[in-house]
């Protein structure tokens, strides 16, 4: 087993699309992306829309097949889609995901408790009282009480649903958690709660995070290292504080300067060439 929790080499995704005249064309969403993440590490992938960051996340968790390149998680290859049920389960125990939209990422007809228990049943040998105890632990860990455990998603607020989604992801006891814009849709005060929660969970369990985000401040708060992506390619990478405080690439500088902070005056020079 390798020392890395996650290792990605030369990952590429080409979509077949129709161009403006209806002809077949190819669109490279992700081009030659490589990175690694050590156990209990935390990597931020930052970019704007069209940067390919979400496609990277979808390839990592197996929702989108890669066109080329390799991915290994805990030393095991997952470059090809899982064929057998046992493989699917195995991969699920290695890596889990929390999506952006807390309103659609939970089955609306299932209570929170039964959603989490379904995962426990599939991935752990626990039965009866032991499983119930584990469920209680998970719910405590994300700060949901008994009544919220018995509720359906509709009856919960956005922040509570996102906690439920985190609990469900943790139920498989993964070593790597992909957070795909997981706090972007939350209100500011709720976002702070969830960010604190995520920091606590990492400190307590030694899980590794890959945070996909457009929000530099959130990445800085949660991540040790960062990749800046643009148009499917990595523009800059390195230690999070270093990259954000002393960006080397022009694009990173522009991105950094576009974030409103105290005393910020919007600059027209921040202008990017827009596709027409």
């Amino acid at each position: 087993m390798s020392a890395e929790a996650l290792s990605v080499r030369a990952l590429t995704k080409v979509f077949r699309v129709a161009d403006a005249k209806g002809r077949r064309a190819e669109f490279t969403a992700v081009n030659d992306v490589s990175f690694a993440l050590e156990p209990a590490g935390s990597l931020g992938i930052v970019g704007e829309s069209g940067s390919g960051k979400t496609t990277v996340a979808r390839m990592l968790v197996g929702l989108e097949p890669a066109t080329s390149g390799t991915m290994t998680v805990l030393g095991q290859d997952r470059s090809q889609p899982a064929r057998k049920a046992a493989d699917r389960r195995e991969r699920a125990r290695q890596m889990q995901v929390v999506f952006q939209d807390p309103y659609t990422s939970l089955d609306p007809s299932q209570t929170i408790g039964s959603a989490v228990e379904e995962v426990l049943r599939a991935h752990s040998a626990l039965t009866g009282p032991a499983r119930t105890a584990r469920l209680t632990d998970l719910m405590d860990q994300v700060g949901l009480d008994t009544r919220q455990t018995a509720a359906r998603p509709r009856e919960l607020s956005g922040g509570q649903r996102q906690r439920a989604a985190i609990a469900r992801a943790l139920a498989a006891d993964p070593k790597v958690l992909i957070l795909d814009e997981a706090v972007s849709a939350l209100d500011v005060s709720i976002q702070a709660q969830v960010l604190n929660l995520l920091s606590d969970i990492r400190a307590a369990t030694g899980i590794a995070y890959v945070l996909i985000s457009h929000d530099l401040a959130v990445v800085r708060q949660l991540c040790d290292t960062v990749l800046v992506m643009r148009k499917g390619e990595i523009v800059e990478r390195g230690d999070c504080a270093n990259v954000l405080d002393h960006p080397e690439q022009e694009y990173t500088r522009v991105l950094r300067a576009s974030v409103p902070v105290a005393g910020w005056k919007p600059l027209t020079s921040a202008r990017q060439a827009e596709p027409s």
């Binding site: 500011v188 702070a192 709660q193 959130v218 800085r220 708060q221 504080a241 902070v261």
Partner: peptide
């Protein structure tokens, strides 16, 4: 709100919603 300039140990979260 997390800051882009520095990481804090713990954000000052307002409890509840």
């Amino acid at each position: 709100r997390p800051s882009i300039q520095a990481r804090v140990d713990k954000l000052v979260a307002i409890p509840g919603r």
